[in-house]
Nucleic acid binder design. Structure first.
Length: 898
DNA sequence: GCTCTGCCGAGAGGA
């Protein structure tokens, strides 16, 4: 906060004076807002704005002068002059910008005819968002904020299906029978059937409507593909920006072939992203001259509007295309209802205006929080102004959020201004809400926005395009220099299994684990973010990934890099829920009552009024599998008219309770809707339910917990007696042998512990345990990595190795825990202090639990100290004598050579 | 201080 005040003072000083001021200050702001942004010149230039001043030039016109730097030391300053309308770009000192154009003697000039300025270029905004901002910037920003408030319609479903049919046809054939077949096949796909079900539409209805389009598909193919002579193609009007003005704009356009479908491109040059329906190779015949271009082809199934929005989308795609190949200079807009196709030239003027809209939008998205003028209070910022166009507002899907934000947030600020004509509309849209509801909305919007902006969540996607793989590898979240090996296996549409190997040697030390999300890029600048997916398997030689695109179409020589996709905090779901909670519907009203106004939840008195009489025996039978608190929770839930909160520590059997509930409801003939904030929670429930269907008998087996652990968890952690997951603790090895931890950039590890863990695992397997019954847990990724590597070099099969948290809600027969930490200076990591995590770790084992760690070090952690004291009193701690360690190393040596 | 949790997601049409 202090830094910002200093900055504000700075901004009031004059231009040249400012430029002389301490560089650290700017560095501070830049670091706070744009962590680890790499400043650089060249194609991907990133400049830090040091100062902004508005000046009048000789002609009396306004110019903005920016003092900028691309050097991390902030020493080498350059000047950027913004002329004409570029003056209005809302750029401030401390901002990061990208410049397109020419720089002569350290001066950039961006004017109406030449050059672009991209504000916050690492915020990538989609083509459709920008196109929709033409009519209403506020709507575009609201749509980015409250995403889910736009339920899909019949027309959208038809649109999606027709897109797919066309995309399949262009790689196959436009023959009528083939089109028919492709259409039928597409309609049958499960995701479309689901959507039809949701919209209450029959398959026949959709089929009919889709088939109505097919003749136009044929017509288009007949017009634009496969002809004998170039003049057989329809005449069109198209001048490319590079054509000389003398050239006739009349030409024939021939679509030669489809190069890609649904190509997804991120453009950190223009701050854009998007998916191109079809990328086509096109011949433009003009007189005797022919130009070949690879262009975006945008499909539309709705009205043939040739609207500015549609055309703008195409223009933006020409900018995206430049990330991968030569400037197409134009794109194509095809209306599938009629087969009519319009060429869309990408003129400088259009691109300039669209990029200016992008900048405005980026500004709004970046500045979501402001300070109140009077009291410097942190508050939500105003959104772009409400427009005064009843027609546009009438059908706007963001109307509710627009009015709500205006009333709950903007109208509470000093000096807010709302167009007077819109006030009645805003009042009408929000009249169902009480003051408490408006305040709730405003508060949670602010909290969620602040959370998304917190330091933790400033993820740096941009490192993929700003940092070479070799540099990124040092952080452990990237692997470069990979080549694709073996065939790509198609699992289904949109899931392709790829194998990668390092071109030379083994895969370097990395944090990447199975299950991590990754972004696959080519190491070349033009090939980044080719595909996304997750790691399926990783060992010292090979990474197997499940990706959303098939990369076998690319040349085999391409060098790839995998970057771990850092989770960006998802506030979209809660914001969407928040918006839904404010809707004028019966359900939302009830929820507002309960959640905001704290109406007590109601319960009926008798189970007999809830459960059908004839289900009594079945229910009784199902309930047998639960302990007392679980049954009590179950009863409460069944009697609930509103909601019931079931609260419990990890391992206390919440999921089991829910599963049993589902089974009861199912047995009584109710339909059940499972929803969850997390996917994994629902997955766990489904997994357990599936188990019930298969064997079942598991329910009857009461698992016994070792009394020592039971006592401990009950006393220190749970207080509840409903521990389900039951571990039999056998031994705790106290490693009296030298087993120091290693702290490096990739994390904390302990090679000795890793070796012992692997050795013990091998013993269990030799004793007849199935590798799938064994789980290895360590709190640090680096340790998992080392254990994985040792396992990979052994003859041990697939033993699951993962972090504590990944075991949440699951059991293994045997669990080995490596605590890793071992040092003399008593360095305490935050990680092990978390007793909830400890609880998860020690309650995952059904039959045998082995904890491996350095007792003196672990005693530094209060929760562990309690556990160790407890185990000590039960004589469950076993020292590992140094003589044994020597033997162990021998054995391990042998074992590794095996 | 090195863990994890919320994640497919840009665009499907309408005026």
């Amino acid at each position: 906060m202090e830094q910002l005040d200093e900055l504000e003072l700075l901004m009031e000083k004059s231009f040249w004076e400012e430029a002389e001021l301490p560089a650290e200050l700017f560095q501070k702001k830049a670091v706070a807002s744009f962590p680890r942004t790499v400043l650089s010149r060249g194609m991907d230039n990133r400049y830090l704005v040091l100062a902004v001043s508005t000046v009048q030039n000789k002609e009396g016109n306004c110019e903005k002068h920016l003092v900028i730097t691309a050097s991390q030391s902030l020493e080498n300053k350059e000047l950027c002059i913004l002329r004409n309308d570029w003056c209005s770009v809302p750029v401030e000192p401390g901002d990061i910008i990208h410049l397109e154009g020419d720089c002569t003697s350290d001066t950039w000039i961006i004017d109406k005819d030449f050059g672009y300025l991209i504000l916050y270029p690492d915020i990538l905004i989609s083509g459709t968002s920008i196109a929709s901002s033409i009519r209403c910037m506020r709507r575009a920003v609201l749509s980015e904020t409250f995403r889910s408030s736009d339920p899909a319609t019949r027309q959208m479903l038809i649109g999606t299906v027709l897109h797919e049919v066309f995309q399949k046809a262009i790689n196959n054939s436009f023959a009528p029978e083939k089109l028919q077949e492709l259409a039928f096949q597409t309609i049958q796909e499960i995701r479309h059937l689901k959507e039809m079900y949701r919209l209450n539409l029959s398959q026949d209805e959709i089929k009919q409507e889709v088939e109505d389009y097919l003749p136009s598909f044929c017509k288009w193919a007949g017009d634009f593909m496969h002809k004998n002579a170039s003049t057989d193609f329809p005449q069109m009007q198209l001048s490319l920006p590079s054509d000389s003005s003398k050239d006739n704009s009349t030409c024939n356009i021939e679509v030669v072939k489809s190069m890609d479908i649904e190509e997804s491109i991120w453009s950190p040059r223009f701050g854009l992203k998007g998916k191109i329906d079809v990328t086509v190779g096109v011949k433009i015949h003009r007189g005797c001259k022919t130009k070949y271009k690879i262009m975006p082809l945008e499909l539309k199934t709705g009205k043939e509007s040739n609207s500015i929005e549609h055309r703008s989308q195409v223009v933006l795609y020409t900018l995206l295309s430049q990330e991968r190949r030569a400037d197409p200079e134009a794109g194509l807009l095809l209306y599938l209802k009629t087969g009519q196709m319009y060429p869309v030239p990408a003129n400088h003027l259009d691109k300039r205006e669209l990029l200016k809209l992008r900048n405005q939008m980026a500004f709004s998205l970046f500045h979501r929080i402001s300070k109140s003028a009077t009291r410097q209070k942190t508050q939500l910022a105003s959104l772009p102004q409400i427009i005064e166009e009843e027609k546009t507002c009438k059908y706007c899907s963001q109307m509710g959020n627009c009015a709500l934000y205006s009333r709950a947030v903007e109208q509470q600020m000093d000096g807010s201004s709302v167009p007077i004509v819109m006030l009645p509309k805003i009042e009408e849209e929000t009249q169902h809400l009480k003051q408490t509801h408006l305040e709730y909305f405003s508060l949670w919007c602010l909290m969620l926005t602040l959370e998304s902006q917190s330091k933790d969540n400033k993820k740096n996607h941009q490192n993929i395009w700003l940092m070479p793989a070799s540099e990124m590898e040092k952080s452990g979240s990237c692997i470069g220099h990979l080549i694709r090996t073996e065939h790509v296996k198609t699992i289904c549409d949109g899931q392709y299994l790829h194998n990668f190997q390092r071109k030379h040697g083994a895969i370097p030390v990395t944090n990447l684990l199975a299950g991590d999300r990754v972004i696959v890029s080519g190491e070349e600048r033009s090939l980044f973010a080719l595909s996304r997916g997750y790691v399926k398997e990783i060992n010292t030689t090979t990474v197997t990934c499940l990706l959303d695109r098939n990369l076998s179409v690319l040349p085999e020589s391409i060098l790839f890099r995998l970057d771990q996709e850092e989770k960006s905090c998802d506030i979209e779901t809660p914001l969407g829920n928040l918006s839904k909670l404010m809707e004028n519907t019966f359900v939302s009203k009830k929820l507002r009552d309960l959640i905001i106004d704290f109406r007590e939840p109601q319960f009926t008195s008798y189970l007999s009024s809830v459960l059908p009489h004839d289900a009594k025996d079945t229910v009784a039978c199902i309930l047998k599998g639960l302990n007392k608190p679980q049954r009590q929770a179950m009863k409460k839930v069944l009697l609930s008219k509103d909601y019931t909160l079931v609260v419990g520590m990890p391992g206390t059997g919440k999921t089991t309770t829910i599963c049993t509930l589902v089974r009861i409801l199912y047995a009584c003939g109710f339909s059940v809707l499972l929803t969850s904030y997390t996917h994994s929670a629902v997955d766990n429930i489904l997994l357990k339910l599936a188990k019930f269907k298969i064997g079942f008998l598991r329910l009857g087996q009461t698992q016994k917990v070792h009394p020592a652990i039971q006592q401990f968890t009950e006393q220190e952690i749970c207080r509840s007696k409903s521990i389900k997951s039951l571990a039999l603790l056998e031994e705790l090895y106290n490693s009296q042998v030298p087993a120091p931890e290693q702290v490096e950039k990739g994390g904390v590890s302990n090679i000795t512990e890793a070796k012992v863990i692997v050795f013990l695992t091998s013993i269990f397997i030799k004793a007849g345990c199935s590798p799938s019954d064994i789980g290895i847990i360590a709190p640090y990724r680096q340790q998992l990595k080392i254990i994985n590597d040792l396992l990979a070099h052994s003859s041990i099969g697939m033993v699951e190795v993962n972090t504590v948290d990944k075991y949440q809600g699951r059991d293994k027969s045997i669990v080995l825990v490596s605590f890793v930490r071992s040092n003399k200076d008593g360095t305490v990591g935050e990680l092990l202090k978390d007793w909830r995590r400890l609880n998860v770790a020690i309650t995952r084992a059904k039959h045998k639990l082995i904890l491996l760690g350095c007792v003196p070090s672990l005693n530094c952690y209060p929760p562990l100290e309690k556990l160790l004291n407890h185990l000590n009193s039960e004589k469950l701690i076993i020292d590992l004598p140094s003589r044994e360690h020597g033997n162990l190393c021998h054995i391990l040596g042998d074992f590794q050579r095996e």
